[in-house]
Design a protein around this nucleic acid. Structure first.
Length: 353
DNA sequence: AATACGTGGCA
DNA sequence: TTGCCAAGTAT
């Protein structure tokens, strides 16, 4: 097919030199694909380098502690990726004797690996003839073939998948898949696509109808909710340790650590905070003292905006803390959300702020 | 099918 | 400052 060959030629000439493109080791391909889920290469690359240096093979990853894996993931977001990566490594060792599976269904069955990642690993590491469908592919093919069906519903995805299946280079499916994605990332970009110099400018359906920026069509809208996190940064007078707590399942930042937290529907000041019943559940044995005025951080996420206030509290002693709380001397050594990391950094540099 | 899950870059 | 979005998966 003409389209296929032009695309592959373009890829050979213009592809970026990336570490996971210099190997066929399924383990390394796998790590890169998980890191790059919903994540730009610029953002993921340093994490890939560190992660692979820390956990060079599936055996090392499988025997590591989940907390270590989360620490390596800190700041990358979507932390369930790290937990699933760890779980899957254990599974590869126990169920496949440490050899990464090469059947598409086996790859797909590992935690954290869905349709896209299975196809990516399968085609790149094992030459399986399956097309990848990711954001780049949806955008590029929707524009090139002029697909008006919303791509965020099954019918639209199917149409794109059919075009991809018809176009894939069976002699080297992995290279074809990477070429489509690279083209979507470098040329057929969301905002400023390089249509003027695009090698497909004479055949692109969207360009000929002036609908490049309108495609791909998406039908869903994201709603945001606003949450107020009132953090209690509790220390004993003169002590350097602080109370922290592991975040539980069913909410953001699962598995990461932050401070005792009172969530409220609106902003909370110190007086209101002290009336909160949760406040009393922390069994201080001395009289607690608020230090300074609370620091406010605004953290914008895809589905929610978090207004975080950090209240510094000094107590005589911690007393008998429930087990779920942790007394920590070096909060920077635990995996924490970016928001909390920023606070801790500032706090460490200027203890009095 | 619809929703939740992070963060940073860009205009 | 605000809104949009990026190599998706699990539930």
């Amino acid at each position: 097919m003409d389209f296929t060959h032009h695309l592959i030629r373009w890829y050979d000439e213009h592809k970026r030199d990336l570490p996971w493109r210099r190997t066929h080791d399924p383990y390394l391909i796998w790590i890169s694909e998980i890191i790059l889920q919903q994540t730009r290469i610029d953002q993921g690359l340093p994490y890939y380098e560190r992660f692979v240096a820390l956990f060079p093979d599936v055996e090392t990853l499988a025997t590591a502690e989940e907390r270590e894996v989360l620490k390596a993931w800190q700041g990358l977001g979507y932390y369930s990726r790290a937990c699933n990566l760890h779980k899957a490594a254990v599974e590869v060792v126990n169920r496949y004797g440490g050899v990464f599976p090469s059947l598409l269904e086996d790859i797909r069955s590992l935690p954290g690996i869905g349709a896209y990642t299975a196809a990516a690993i399968g085609s790149i590491a094992f030459h399986l003839p399956v097309p990848v469908i990711d954001g780049n592919v949806l955008r590029f093919l929707a524009r090139y073939f002029g697909v008006e069906t919303p791509v965020d519903v099954a019918v639209g995805k199917k149409r794109i998948a059919d075009y991809a299946t018809a176009s894939i280079d069976l002699s080297d499916p992995g290279t074809f898949n990477q070429a489509v994605m690279e083209f979507g990332a470098m040329v057929c970009t969301p905002l400023n696509p390089a249509c003027g110099t695009c090698i497909f400018r004479d055949q692109c359906r969207a360009l000929s109808t002036g609908s490049v920026l309108r495609l791909p069509v998406k039908s869903k809208t994201v709603t945001q909710r606003i949450r107020h996190f009132n953090y209690l940064v509790i220390t004993t007078k003169g002590e350097k340790s602080v109370i922290m707590k592991r975040r539980e399942q069913g909410d953001i930042w699962k598995g990461l650590y932050d401070f005792p937290l009172i969530e409220s529907s609106g902003p909370l000041d110190i007086k209101k905070l002290q009336k909160e019943p949760e406040w009393l559940q922390l069994p201080f044995s001395g009289r607690e003292v608020m230090i300074g005025s609370p620091r406010l951080y605004r953290h914008v996420l895809t589905h929610q905006v978090i207004m975080a206030r950090f209240f510094r509290v000094s107590v005589k002693s911690f007393g008998e803390l429930p087990e779920k709380f942790l007394v920590v001397k070096r909060p920077d050594q635990l995996p924490v959300p970016r928001l909390v990391e920023k606070y801790i950094t500032r706090w460490t540099n200027e203890p009095d702020f």
